[in-house]
Amino acid sequence: MKDKDQELLLEKLVVINVGVSGFADSLEQQEVEVIQVDWSPPAGGDEEMIDLLEKLL
């Protein structure tokens, strides 16, 4: 069986874009199926809170 990294070169790309929305726009222009994640720092960027949440969830 082929590794997924080799399959990536053969398959149609389906992209999850996390961050700069321009990257999703340029993929859409190329007719790539893409979903934009409007990301923001979890727990307001509070490192301790993020670690705590990760342990709880």
Partner: peptide, 12 residues
């Protein structure tokens, strides 16, 4: 939403 996605692009 896209369980068939094969690539994530991160710019955070």
């Amino acid at each position: 939403e896209k369980p068939h996605a094969n690539l994530a692009v991160l710019s955070i």
